[in-house]
Structure formats: structure tokens, C-alpha cells
Amino acid sequence: MGFTPLPGSAPKKVSAKIVVAGGFGVGKTTLVGSVSEIPPVNTEAIMTQASVPHDDLSRTPDKQTTTVAMDFGRITIAQDLILYLFGTPGQARFWFMWEDLTRGAIGAVIIVDTRRLEDSFQAIDYFEKYTDLPFLIAVNHFEGVPMHPVEDIRNALDLDDDVPVVVFDARDRRQSAGVLAKLVEYTMNFNADPALSR
């Protein structure tokens, strides 16, 4: 084998995760693909879905497995620090895996398309109601679509004043990285300021 570390002595590494959410066709796959260093951005993960109520642990072996296609990306920040991106699967039948997707995340980017803002309502509701995670709204601007003032979008989405709203092009690697940077910056403020936390 090409390595000789002793047990317990593998070089220390750390990872982090950002969740990319939003309605169908808003640009989740495009964002993950534009910034990720690994080409096959769509991962077929086999998940186990509870077919029995959560409290009946004795019956969990009866769970059924489902293959979930999800966007998966990786950015090596440094040899010892890896950032992973997880896109939420679109279909409602995969809601069960959102808890796994969001647990431990540093935050979420929720993408919206101004032609159909309502498609991303469910994702916004999820982060507001069921998680403590900081999130920002990234408006994926498709050419030929009129630019709306950010404040109009904030009002239409009924967002808190502190939630950042940024406009970007998901196909552009630099702009996508900029959106992720903005989220990390917001996360640092959010974690430090109890008033911002929900």
C-alpha cells in the first residue's frame, strides 16, 4: 500500500458543508458544477427511508432503500480543509433526507429565479422553520430577464432584513464562489450575534 501512517496518526483533516437549495430549474446543479473541482456532480446516494414511525426503532431493519440523485461538489480549500456542496433533491418524496443534508452544515444558499419566486418558497420555509442555519438568497439571473431591485425581491419573499440577497450567474465559477463566500461571511456574523439567530 502506498501509505504507512500508524493507527491514530493519519494527518488531521477537517471538512465543512454548504447546502444548495431552491426550486426545480433555478440553477442548483449549475452552481455546484461551476465551482466544484470534481466532474461528476450528480451523485447516486442510496438512502434508507423510514417506512415506520421514528420512535419504533426496533423495526428499523424494515426500512426501504431509495436511490437519490443529488448534486455533490468538492472544493479543496487546503490539503487539510475540504468544503463540500450538497444540492437538495427536488422531488417532494425526498424530503426525508433534508435533515441529513442540513445537519452540521455551515449554512445554505437558496437560489431563486425571479420569474417564479414561489418555486423556492418551500426551501425558504424549511430553513426558517426547521433549522437554525444561516441562509442567503442567491438570485440566479438569466439573460433577457429584467433585473428586479433586491429590495423588491426581499419583500416578495418576506425575508428578515438581515438575510443577504445577492444576484449572480450560476454558470460563472467566480460568481458562484462569491456567493459561497458571502454566505460564509454572513455565517460568521450570524454565529457571533445572538440577535441574528432565530
Partner: peptide, 23 residues
């Protein structure tokens, strides 16, 4: 290995390194 962590438990120094990398 460990992860950077969520919320108040998140390691600020690591978040800063991620921010730099993304910038």
C-alpha cells in the same frame, strides 16, 4: 476527522480560512 461545525460551535478560524479560499 472532525467537521467545522454549525452555529455557535463552529470553528471561527476555520470559517475564516474557508472564506479566504473562496475569495
Amino acid at each position: 476527522h472532525r467537521t467545522v461545525g454549525s452555529g455557535p460551535q463552529a470553528d471561527t478560524e476555520l470559517l475564516e480560512r474557508i472564506l479566504h479560499g473562496l475569495h
